[in-house]
């Protein structure tokens, strides 16, 4: 998939109205944040030690949200937005795998993994890119 997110946006905008902009978008973002996101933080502080973080329901929620973010990770790499789409899939995947490998093998430092992925992407693109 080489089309950029922006092209997809424009196509979607043409199909289903337009992307909300300006203050409308700011208002939508505020409402969504206050209604669905921020309450988890408040709830956590209110419940404090009274919630059973070892309950099965809680563990399931944790696993679901973990899988959701993992799916987001692969979506961002396999169906990338913008300039990342100009990098061959092989290079993108290789950069992620090298970052992951360095993180796991060399002291589990997030910074090492992130820097490695960036370096491999640049190197791979200069060798294999157009």
């Amino acid at each position: 998939m080489t089309s950029s997110l922006h092209e997809v946006t424009q196509a979607a905008g043409a199909a289903s109205g337009t992307l909300p902009t300006g203050l409308t978008l700011a208002l939508i973002l505020t409402v969504i944040s206050l209604a669905t996101h921020e309450p988890w933080r408040w709830l956590g502080l209110i419940l404090g030690r009274n919630i059973d973080v070892d309950s099965e329901l809680f563990r399931w929620v944790r696993a679901v949200s973990t899988a959701l973010v993992a799916a987001l990770v692969t979506r961002l790499v396999v169906f990338p937005a913008g300039a990342l789409g100009g990098v061959p899939l092989l290079v993108r995947v290789l950069a992620m795998l090298c970052g992951l490998g360095v993180y796991l093998l060399f002291g589990r430092r997030i910074s090492f993994g992130v820097v490695t992925a960036a370096v491999v992407l640049v190197a791979g693109q200069s060798i294999m890119g157009p």
Binding site: W40, G44, R49
Partner: peptide, 17 residues
Amino acid sequence: VTLTGMRLLPMSVLLMP
């Protein structure tokens, strides 16, 4: 977004004390 926000609940529970 609601589901990703749930990840924050255990963090705040643990930080509260």
